[in-house]
Design a protein around this nucleic acid. Structure first.
Lengths: 139, 139
DNA sequence: TAGCATCTTTGGCAAGATACTAATGATTCA
DNA sequence: TGAATCATTAGTATCTTGCCAAAGATGCTA
């Protein structure tokens, strides 16, 4: 089991929007991509997924861009992971008939532990930590 | 993050060996492959990795095969996952300089939760569950 | 209403990972 | 010696990942 770069990008993009919140001016793709060092062409697709899951909202045209659709406190890392990869920890093998039930139970325990940990971190906390290290944001 | 078929095969192979324990006759690859419905040619490679990590042992030649190198209680799901995939939850992005520290912290929390859950299940428990459902082993 | 800036959608693609197959070698035992 | 087994290595079809880029849709403004 490996964490994908995409999931990381998604969390960092949401963090950027959360740090900008509740400023009314939306952040453009290019701004987010630059701040978080994410390839803009890839970020586009990630933002679309986050939007379709109701985590962020967008506006087009001049003065367009992205903003959170909820408060940072209402968005967890688990929400972001589910938005971009379907589930915090995907286990297709839970559907396989040949996997014995007791092994499936062990897999489920791991899955639930990861899910709980992911749902336990919201972006208000993440922003608070980020702001306690302001030096990062002058580079 | 997705659980691989390989990890599942590894757990099922160790379960088969644990259920056979402490019988002195080793289990042949073909036996394990048949019992757990795992492609034999693939299982070979998995068993080699489990052996190199000291979880199982082997004997060659006639009357050869595999057996556990420890008691089922001494082997956890976490041990098996680390043996076949390096870590319970791999997070190469923890090494990336562009990922802010507060996001890394969130990733670490998820990683540790999964690790703890995996280390919390040993194969004695798994065997006990399996034996409480004996119907599976007559098919 | 023209035109531009932005988001949106779609298709493509190179590199790597996954889940195998298969051939050959090495070891043990009778 | 030879049969049975594990051990090693190479190959490979398919899928996934992490992007790029072109064309479209929409909103703002002059």
């Amino acid at each position: 089991m490996k964490a994908s770069v995409k999931s990381d990008y998604a969390c960092r993009a949401v963090e950027a929007l959360a740090l900008h919140h509740p400023n009314t001016r939306p952040l453009r793709i290019e701004e987010i991509a630059h701040r978080e060092a994410i390839p803009a062409n890839y970020l586009v697709q990630i933002l679309i997924e986050l939007k379709s899951k109701g985590l962020i909202q967008s506006r087009r045209g001049k003065a367009g861009g992205y903003a959170l659709a909820k408060t940072p406190r209402e968005i967890t890392v688990g929400d972001v992971l589910r938005a971009v990869q379907g589930d915090v920890l995907e286990m297709p093998l839970l559907l396989e008939a040949r996997c014995p039930e007791e092994i499936k139970r062990a897999w489920r325990r791991i899955k639930q532990a990861a899910e709980q940990a992911a749902d336990d971190v919201n972006f208000e906390e993440i922003c608070a930590e980020a702001k306690s290290r302001p030096e990062m944001y002058y580079i």
